[in-house]
Structures are given as structure tokens and as C-alpha cells.
Simulated assay, not measured.
Amino acid sequence: MVEKLPASISRTIQTKLVLPPDTNHLGTIFGGTVLSYIDEIAAITAMKHSKGVVVTASIDTVNFLSSARVGDILLLEGLVVSTGRTSMEVYVKVECQNLETGEKTTTTTAILTMVAVNETGKPTPVLGVEPETEADYKLFKLAQERKERRLKVKELLGES
């Protein structure tokens, strides 16, 4: 039986302020800046689960749903939703909070695959994950489909 850690062990939350250098000529945050934040929180989330160093293996999906403007607060939440032998699938949700109204809007969602590595950079085994909430279970159940889709794409591109 594979030992599992509760999903809450990896749950990570960060808060960022959108500043003028983070934005484009329209006054909205650069997508690349959001991607950088997503990669960072995914790494921290996976490190908490694996208790070690990780590298980004892939960014499976990124959905830009709405934008954030200068002065908005970004709330990022990461969670390990499934694991392989050495890999962890991390779900990241980014919300924008308007300071004046307090209203929150989901701006971006993403799914990344992180791989635990040892001091020489070789992949190292990780424990399984046990979903705890209804949302965790939904993401966990769909993980196998996402993995199969990633493998098919790698095969089609000759990357296997």
C-alpha cells in the first residue's frame, strides 16, 4: 500500500500586489508575470509535499480568464492534486481582489507537473496524495485523463 499525505499538507497561499512595472500598455498584468508567479507557487507547493527540491516538468494548461490591474491584489493558491512515482500534479488558482470593493474574481487557473529531484538532479520518489475536499476529489479523479493526454501529445511529437 502506497503511503499518502493529506492534500492540505501541500496547500500554499501567496498574496501579490500588482505594481506598474508588472503591467502592459493597457494597465493590465503581463501574462508572463502571472506565469512566473504560478511556477513559483507550484514549486513551493510541490516542495512542501515532497519535502525536497523539485523542478518544473510541464505546464499542462493555463487558462487566462480575466485580467488584473495596477493596485489589485492577487491571491494565489496551489495544491498537489495527484502524484506519480516521482512527479506531482499541482493545481494553481489565481484570484484578483479589488481593494475598494473587496470583490474577488478568478483570473487564471493552471495545472503543472513538478518532479522531485535529489542533490544530483535525479528524480526521487514521492508519497501519494489523499484528496480531502470535494474540489480535491474532482481534480484527483481527472488527473489520470490529463496524464494520458500528456503522454499522447509526447508520443505524437516524438518526445517519449
Results as ranks from 00 to 15, higher is better:
Ile41Val: 11
Ser87Glu: 04
Arg69Pro: 00
Ser10Ala: 13
Thr15Lys: 09
Met88Asp: 11
Asn24Pro: 08
Ala43Cys: 12
Lys4Thr: 12
Thr28Pro: 02
Glu119Pro: 05
Ala42His: 04
Ser160Tyr: 11
Thr45Lys: 05
Cys96Ala: 12
Thr107Arg: 03
Thr61Ile: 12
Arg146Ile: 04
Ala43Gly: 14
Glu40Phe: 14
Ile44Ala: 01
Arg85Glu: 10
Arg69Phe: 07
Asn63Cys: 04
Ala57Thr: 04
Val70Ser: 02
Arg149Asn: 15
Ser82Ile: 08
Pro123Ile: 01
Val2Met: 11
Met88Val: 10
Ser36Ile: 07
Val81His: 00
Glu77Ala: 14
Ser87Gly: 04
Ser10Cys: 09
Tyr91Asp: 14
Pro123Lys: 01
Tyr91Cys: 08
Lys16Tyr: 15
Ile41Arg: 07
Arg149Pro: 07
Ile44Lys: 00
Arg150Asn: 04
Glu100Asn: 13
Lys16Arg: 15
Leu112His: 02
Val18Trp: 01
Val62Ile: 15
Gly121His: 07
Leu139Arg: 15
Glu95Gln: 15
Glu103Ser: 10
Thr33Glu: 09
Lys122Tyr: 10
Asn63Leu: 08
Ile73Val: 15
Gly121Phe: 06
Leu99Cys: 07
Phe140Cys: 03
Val129Cys: 02
Ile111Thr: 12
Gly32Gln: 02
Thr107Glu: 09
Val18Phe: 02
Lys51Cys: 10
Ser66Thr: 06
Thr106Trp: 02
Ala110Asn: 05
Lys141Gln: 14
Glu132Leu: 03
Ser8Ile: 05
Leu17Gly: 05
Gly121Glu: 06
His49Lys: 02
His49Leu: 05
Asp136Trp: 11
Ile38Ser: 01
Thr28Ser: 13
Val126Gly: 07
Ser66Pro: 03
Leu26Thr: 11
His49Ile: 08
